[in-house]
């Protein structure tokens, strides 16, 4: 057994789990954060993507013990309070989801992607960057659209903030 201490969505949590417990199962079963999903066994589908210390990783391919000490953001903690995060809002506005199962992982990957391309994204880049996230419902068309739109919204927001600061 391992003692696992994490900061999850801004809250310090700790618990004890078998060493073989995957981070995704710790989040789902010990913390009740069931928004993070498991869609495959081979670390390919990306339904389990969460942010660990600011990076989008597959929580099905990491032991909870390995993550101990880390800061984690899951889909449940992405937005501040009642407001939707701009990526969440864009997925809704552009119909970037259908059954919703891959959606949390898609959104967590998309926020990471947008952060890595502050200069903005184009369609080809978004599609390439989604290599580790599989969706069976949408054909990706509207997911790509949503991410491009969110990227623009966030870039405008960042500029606005920069102006305010200046």
């Amino acid at each position: 057994m391992s003692d696992v201490s994490l900061t999850v969505n801004g809250r310090r949590v700790s618990g004890s789990a078998e060493d073989r417990t995957l981070l995704v199962h710790f989040l789902r079963e010990h913390l009740g954060l069931t928004g993070t999903h498991v869609g495959c066994d081979t670390s390919q589908c990306g339904a389990c993507v969460v942010h660990v210390d600011g990076r989008a990783v597959k929580s099905c391919t990491m032991l909870a013990a390995q993550a101990s000490g880390s800061t984690i953001v899951t889909i449940e903690g992405l937005s501040d309070g009642a407001e939707l995060h701009p990526v969440q809002a864009a997925f809704k506005e552009h119909h970037g989801l259908q059954c919703g199962f891959c959606t949390p992982g898609m959104i967590m990957m998309a926020t990471d992607m947008i952060a890595r391309y502050p200069e903005g994204l184009d369609e080809a880049t978004v599609r390439a960057e989604l290599d580790g996230n599989i969706c069976r419902c949408t054909g990706y068309h509207n997911i790509v659209k949503a991410i491009l739109a969110a990227s623009e919204t966030m870039a405008k927001g960042a500029k606005g903030k920069a102006k305010q600061a200046a």
Partner: peptide, 12 residues
Amino acid sequence: EDKRFITGGGRY
């Protein structure tokens, strides 16, 4: 229905 799916509130 999107609200719950985009915030991790879906129940499978």
